[in-house]
């Protein structure tokens, strides 16, 4: 376990009572802080999800008093079809994760390890895409994904419905 101790705070530091108390105090503060900030809102959300709309709206402070509306969860899967949307989300998450890994790893390897002469230009061009807000390319991007010629892919399905909805404004931060 000695490896575990080789951080900013050493075993020797903890030997001094004053330092030990100070370090412990910081640790307690950090724990309380992240627990309140990280867990607090989620706990409230969890309780609120077991209330009726009216109960949450009338008194948001009292959500734990009548957290018994389990039908909300059933309703999410029956009336709103959560299952289908979760599956869609998994599909998008896995797909974009794989694509991201492929592109990001290969690009990073080229730019940082192989360092060809054009590495600077490439990283600049990638950084530049961050500068332009999504709306600028919204319509052209949609036209782009409607027909992807090299692969013969396109989203105009035979039923006339568009398989892919147009991109929306993303949250920027």
């Amino acid at each position: 376990m000695s490896d575990d101790f080789r951080t900013l705070v050493s075993r020797h530091d903890l030997g001094r009572p004053a330092t030990r108390i100070a370090v412990r105090l910081v640790h307690v503060l950090v724990f309380v802080g992240v627990a309140v900030a990280g867990l607090g809102p989620l706990v409230w959300l969890a309780f609120a999800s077991l209330n009726t709309t009216q109960e949450v709206l009338r008194d948001p402070f009292a959500v734990w008093l009548h957290a018994d509306e389990w039908t909300n969860y059933a309703a999410a899967f029956t009336t709103v079809d959560m299952g289908k949307y979760l599956l869609n989300t998994v599909f998008v998450a896995v797909g974009s994760c794989l694509a991201n890994l492929l592109v990001a790893c290969s690009a990073a390897y080229v730019i940082a390890i192989l360092k060809p002469r054009w590495a600077g230009v490439l990283s600049g061009a990638i950084l530049a895409t961050l500068f332009v807000p999504g709306v600028v390319s919204l319509v052209p991007l949609y036209l782009t994904i409607l027909d992807v010629p090299p692969f013969g892919l396109n989203c105009r399905t035979p039923t006339g419905r568009c398989g892919c909805p147009p991109p929306r404004m993303r949250s920027a931060s």
């Binding site: 694509a99 492929l102 592109v103 290969s106 690009a107 390897y109 080229v110 192989l114 490439l122 061009a125 990638i126 895409t129 332009v132 600028v136 390319s137 919204l138 319509v139 052209p140 991007l141 036209l143 782009t144 994904i145 992807v148």
Partner: peptide, 23 residues
Amino acid sequence: LAVPTLVVFGYFSWKPLLQGMVM
């Protein structure tokens, strides 16, 4: 090794961006 980056960024990022700028 740079091909995936060039293709993906070129086709889905740089091209629509330039087209958007034209607008």
